[in-house]
Structures are given as structure tokens and as C-alpha cells.
Amino acid sequence: MIRFDSVSKRYPGGNEALRGLDLHIERGEMVFITGASGAGKSTFLRMIPLLERPSQGSVMIDGVNLLRLRRSRVPFLRRRVGMIFQDHRLLHDRSVFDNVALPLVIAGRSHADVGRRVRAALDKVGLLHKEKASPVTLSGGEQQRVGIARAVVTRPPVILADEPTGNLDPALSEEIMALFEQFNQVGVTTVIASHDHALIERLGHRRIHLQDGRVA
């Protein structure tokens, strides 16, 4: 599903985030990416929906070489990759419902379809009763779950999460990880960058440890 072949990323100024990363994640796998900050976890995740482009090497997603992907096709790649951020990236002037509906509106779904799918996604993360609320009135854990609902509402084949439990207490972190496991159980390839070693240890999925921009 996700294949990196000797991928390097050098930022202007000489900072090298990835140095010849070789990595393969199978379809339907659940994988944790660990490593110290600066090891390249975020850069790795951001290359999958082409938020970054590699300086060298090739990235294949679901059989498509991203090097050869035309600029106009990038939005359609991003629709197939649900991305979850540590800082949630929600729209604060819209309701919870509208935030979760945005990917469906972008994809041009009909009005009735949008309502049904948004409620299903909100129900899944346990926030159905908050659909009219503004994101700023929600707690950190709730905002994170709105972000997750937005990422999965289009049922993408891949979910990426960058430190999804970074700011949460252990109980909430456990809840969030349980949600990801549920998505994974229905066949979604799930990649999570995290440094919550204790939790990862307990969950027992495949771990990829990055160090200095390559697999350690």
C-alpha cells in the first residue's frame, strides 16, 4: 500500500529529514512510527498525501508513483488519505457538523448523503450530541475526535495520524487508540506516529523506529 524506496528529503538550508528511507507497509496493516523528534516521523507522514515531495527516491501509494502524479490529481490522492493532526486543524468558525462534512462537500456528495455519513462518523467517535457545537467549546480530546471523524467520514483506505495523543491524558489516549484499532479492523491501513512507548507496547502492532531519517 505504502512503499518508500531510498527516499531522501533535504530542506533548503541543508537540514536532512530523511536519508534513504526504505519502508513498506502492507494493505490493511496497523503500524506505529516511533523515534525521537527530528528523526523524520512527520516528514515521512507528510510525504504520503504529498504535503512534501522527496528530494530523491520514489514513493508508491496503492500502486501509484507519486513522482508521476500530476498536480491536478493531488487533491484526489488526498481524498484517499485521511490525515489526523496533533493540533486538529479544525475550522473554528464552523460547527462540528460542518467540519466533519467538509470532505464530503469537497467530494461533491449529495445533501442527504452528507447528513447520513456525518452523523455516522460522529456517532462512531461518540460526539453525535455535539454536532451543533463550535469546536472551540470542546475539550482537547473531543476536538481530536472531531478531527478523526473528519478523516474517516469519506472511508479512505489509508489513515495517517501525527501524534494523535500528544496532548491527551493516558485514559483519553487509550480511547483514541482503540478507535484507530476499530478502523483498522475493517481493513483501513493505519499509520500512527507516536512516542507514547508504553501504550504502543501494550497494543502490540508492528513498530517502525526511525533514527536520523532512516529505519533503525
Binding site: P75, R78, M83, L91, L102, I106, A107, A151
Partner: peptide, 16 residues
Amino acid sequence: RSEIEITKLIGGTDAF
């Protein structure tokens, strides 16, 4: 700006 960024992030085309 932030709305535009997020829209592009989750697959909004330029036309959208």
C-alpha cells in the same frame, strides 16, 4: 487562509 489550507489538505481541488 486557514480555511483554504485545510480545504486543500483534505483534497479540495483548485476549482473548489
